[in-house]
Design a protein around this nucleic acid. Structure first.
Lengths: 155, 155
DNA sequence: TGATGAATATTGGAACACAAATGATTTGAG
DNA sequence: CTCAAATCATTTGTGTTCCAATATTCATCA
């Protein structure tokens, strides 16, 4: 198999992994009434204690405006709360509520599920080589992203 | 590094790869006026000749209802056309238009771009091991997906 | 002090993605 | 041949994601 073909398949497979993750999110939603991003946000809230929207967004690696919507839905379901921060009134204090904590106990580990099962079915050395290869890939892709942003800002 | 940590990092890295692909889609959009899914669809239309919406959806591995919107935008831009199929009037015939063909010549290879550059910066053996690991992962995840669907349909 | 600038959350707009329901058409079984 | 079932594209509704623009609040420094 030549290099081009390798790349072609990797691309297809990445797409399928993403696709499987999305389908998993739908399954979770059907069983627990909240999607994978919502579940993940809840999990970060449990881990991180009281957070602001900004810190939550950074923890999730999402744009703040995205997290607003996710949080809206968590609050609607009484799984989390939004309170004004008395110290800094630009901020809000986000907290997980008892109902959210209870849900976390019976829900799968956030956003993993099927992926974790997939990885667990692989040999230790395969998992390690996947991790190494992905890490390299991410490093190069993110470096390119910086270059691109620099390039465009120079217009 | 233990297994759990490996899995955790793989998950994070996959997320970052997906994120980089999304940002890449925005870049493409800024430069060529169409997003990565649109570009990819156009590329499939060039490859596949006259297609129906269903075959295009299968080629893109997307839900038909998703492709309706993507195609709408391509037609709006005069890059593709929608015609009724005289043989089977349930179907439509989708074709790439000259303007779409011209755009494909100067646009990057669909949906790849940054990912391809990333992979090209890696050694041959790393690319191969990544491909193998991803293929295994996909196989297991999609097998689980089938099981889940079976499980839910048995309710 | 008082104005300017930075930080924070939010809104609005566009695109993508799915499932479920709909309407039109074709196919197939009796 | 006829009517029920399957197929095909689409619409509707929900959710995720980004960016750009906005309002509010805080911090800095002249």
């Amino acid at each position: 198999m030549d290099r081009t073909e390798n790349i072609e398949r990797i691309f297809q497979d990445l797409r399928r992994v993403v696709h499987a993750l999305e389908l998993y999110s739908k399954d979770v939603n059907a069983r627990f009434g909240l999607t994978a991003p919502q579940l993940w946000a809840l999990w970060e809230l449990e881990r991180g204690g009281g957070m602001t929207l900004g810190t939550l967004a950074r923890a999730l690696q999402l744009h703040p405006s995205t997290v607003v919507g996710v949080l809206d839905r968590l609050v609607d379901k009484d799984l989390a709360s939004r309170e004004p921060d008395p110290q800094d009134r630009r901020r809000i204090r986000i907290r997980i509520l008892p109902k959210g904590r209870a849900l976390l106990k019976r829900a799968p580990h956030p956003a993993q599920g099927r992926l974790v099962h997939g990885l667990q079915a692989m040999s230790e050395s395969q998992v390690t080589s996947l991790r190494r290869a992905l890490a390299t890939l991410v490093r190069v892709m993110e470096a390119e992203d910086l270059e691109a942003r620099f390039f465009f800002s120079e217009d």
